[in-house]
Write a protein that binds this DNA or RNA. Structure first.
Lengths: 195, 195
DNA sequence: TGATTTTATTATCCTTTGTTATCGTTCCGG
DNA sequence: CCGGAACGATAACAAAGGATAATAAAATCA
């Protein structure tokens, strides 16, 4: 347990450097949670109030439209996972989070986090930096969608895949992620490998 | 001047409620700036350090790729405008901001803002809420790009255009914003109005 | 005002993607 | 270990968007 906490602490350290005292404000609310393959971390329509940190496993999140799932993001070990927009707005989540492989998480309730924001400028700063990090990632992703063709997006993904998406995620989910259909992605792969 | 400041203060009030004392931390760094039509607020390749609040006017921002401008956002009176990602990362801006109509802004340097973050939990919270607001908007926009067809995106825009984009922005910029070509957008308009 | 530039529409042609269906293969649960 | 479901590749066809060019309308500005 302690070493799991240590991993989280180091991940938080990428954003802020809490003192022991500040850390003790957070620690009581942490718990470990396991999610089996195909189980859900968060369900569409429900208000989310859980932020997780992935110790291991794989997760995807998807929107549902006309009964069709559109997968738009993947999560791996050592990263935070949450229906963050739902947490911050208090609105029902538009997203469903599903484990693609068994996940071990450290979780804490966002409403407790909000209390920390009020109590401590360090945790308030942490909240800011997390939101900025999120915004930065979304901005980059959106620029790719607006500026690049599907084929270019695929090429960009394979040439910068630090997160092992291609090895660990079924192709039809990746196609969703790139904003194209699985069939089209298969064609692109065919086209690209022949060059 | 004072009434301009009052407008900004009310806009900030949508996020936090500064006391007079907290407000005095910010006020010294505020100034009014005018940008004539076709002039730039921020230039690609330069590190941005300016956050603006639009009192009047219209602005767009665009990426440049192979010498082609891709307009991806518009700004109107009563909203904040900034190459925020560049401000928070300190990296050169990927975006250029151009006034489409003469703009009057209240501006303040982001590096001063960062000092306020350190000094005051209220301003730190303001920073968080701004970033969250940005993330929320980007998330929504990205979901649209991934889930909707160009025609659906156009229809979504015209049916929810609170920002007067359609009336005040040339169509070929809007086409960029929707991720399609101007010609394609013209076809969609034709198709849609016949129904 | 008149000339030039910018903007929007339309037509043509071509490429790409979406859709649907088929066919192996792999994966997984009973 | 077997059988059904999930997955990926491929084919055929339809629909849509991209590229280009021509034209018309509108805005800009000297």
């Amino acid at each position: 347990m302690d070493e799991k906490i240590a991993i989280l602490r180091s991940a938080i350290g990428r954003f802020v450097a809490p003192t022991d005292q500040e850390w003790d404000m957070l620690a009581p609310w942490l718990s470990v949670k396991t999610i089996k393959k195909h189980e859900l971390f968060c369900r569409e329509g429900e208000r989310a109030d859980l932020v997780g940190f992935m110790l291991s496993g794989t997760m995807r999140h998807y929107y549902t439209r006309d009964g069709i799932e559109k997968t738009t993001y993947f999560y791996f070990e050592n990263h935070f996972v949450s229906s963050y927009i739902s947490c911050i707005t208090g609105q029902p989540s538009q997203l469903t989070f599903e484990a693609l492989a068994e996940c071990e998480l450290i979780v804490f309730p966002y409403h407790k986090m909000k209390q920390l924001f009020k109590q401590s400028i360090l945790w308030q700063e942490f909240g800011r930096l997390i939101a900025e990090y999120l915004a930065k990632g979304l901005e980059e992703r959106m620029a790719g969608l607006l500026m690049l063709s599907p084929e270019e997006r695929y090429l960009a993904l394979i040439s910068s895949d630090k997160t092992k998406i291609l090895e660990r995620i079924p192709q039809h989910y990746i196609a969703n992620y790139l904003g194209i259909t699985p069939v089209s992605m298969s064609r692109i792969r065919n086209r690209v490998t022949k060059k």
